[in-house]
Design a protein around this nucleic acid. Structure first.
Lengths: 212, 212
DNA sequence: CCGGCTGTTTACCATGCAGTAAATTTTTAA
DNA sequence: TTAAAAATTTACTGCATGGTAAACAGCCGG
């Protein structure tokens, strides 16, 4: 089974591997270039300068600047979603808390590029208003994040730990506050925004969930 | 009186008036061009095409693209702030409500470009993370908006209409939710976001203020 | 050792763009 | 009326930028 897979899978997967490796390099270079210059002032040259390879390889792997950006979008969204995985099974209060923390502060383990990645994510997110295709990608992503929060709230309601509020509405509100705090930290440079948001959520929103 | 004013005011104010008129035309053209193309893809040519004048006049009135954008920033922020003026003096609950509504839905009178202006505002707001000067301008503006909400909350607490919560924290939270809803409507195209935000604020946040 | 395939580089190009300069019209101050 | 100043237009330029083409390197099967 494995053997036969390799027999005809070989050349294909080999190429793919080396190809994927380079593409990963390009993605990371794009990320760095984007961090430095911002989307508006991003030049293909800037990306090239962030790699050991020359900028022309990009044209070999991607079909122009737009295609590159589309791929990068998926790349950075995947990273985002990978970073908010949480061991569910814990009680709803703990899990909700953990999810909120991860959205606000990033993964526990020291991912020191977290805010740089958020910065880039957020910039692309805003620009998506001018691009239907990218907007659709972000909508899917947003829906998943929001959905995961709503889920936990529903779980808590079913278990009788939370009051019987409108889970959709509550999840939406929490997601919005998280988004705003992130935006404020990134766009306005308010370093304390996530912490403030957490306190505000605890104090004014979650008490609507808890006090029975 | 009028005569004497004209005597020494003539050359200066006339120039200024005609100059300001043209600059206003340029600002509005910039707004339209920005709405159509987005900041990233904004060309001086696009602005020219939105006016009766040729694009080169812009260079006469402004010192290049960056200077133009800086001026436009102040222009659109002034418009924003002009649109959230509210007759204070009403009771805190009503006034807070009115301010929230104006931030979420725009001025009462039919300003049908409201969301287009918000869209442009929001895009510039996000790009400001790459420009310290612009970021500072937005910070000042944000502080005024947030401050005006905090003020009303404080007023309500003093008058004993609201519970004695941390006004700063509460004002911040409300401002954040407003911001997020706007961002969601603009970036993700969620038409219902402002309405949802209003309901969520009423249901989950303001009840922390009211129930005494 | 060789012919073909993938991936990378070097050299180059077309053009879109902001900005300028000079000519022209309009306004202002006598 | 007139001359100078302000405002606008027409014509042009230099260069930054995305993209291409052809040469080149490494690898793999035979």
């Amino acid at each position: 089974m494995l053997v036969s897979l390799r027999v005809y899978g070989m050349s294909e997967s080999r190429e793919k591997v080396s190809s994927k490796e380079t593409e990963e390099v390009i993605m990371e270079a794009t990320f760095r270039a984007l961090s430095k210059h911002g989307y508006k002032d991003l030049r293909m040259r800037d990306i090239g300068e962030e790699m050991d390879l020359t900028r022309q390889v990009i044209h070999y792997h991607f079909d122009g600047k737009y295609d590159l950006m589309s791929s990068f979008l998926e790349y950075i969204i995947d990273q985002y979603e990978g970073s908010v995985e949480v061991a569910d099974g814990a009680d709803p209060r703990t899990e909700l808390d953990a999810r909120i923390d991860q959205c606000l502060f990033g993964p526990d383990f020291e991912e020191f590029t977290h805010w740089d990645r958020m910065k880039v994510y957020h910039e692309l997110y805003t620009y998506a208003q001018n691009d239907d295709e990218h907007q659709a990608i972000f909508n899917d992503h947003y829906e998943r994040i929001r959905g995961s929060i709503v889920e936990v709230v529903e779980e808590g309601i079913e278990e009788g730990v939370f009051r019987d509020v409108d889970a959709e509405q509550m999840g939406q509100l929490i997601t919005d506050v998280i988004h705003a705090a992130r935006g404020r930290r990134i766009s306005l440079g308010h370093e304390g925004a996530p912490e403030e948001a957490k306190q505000a959520i605890d104090e004014f929103i979650l008490d609507s969930l808890y006090e029975n």
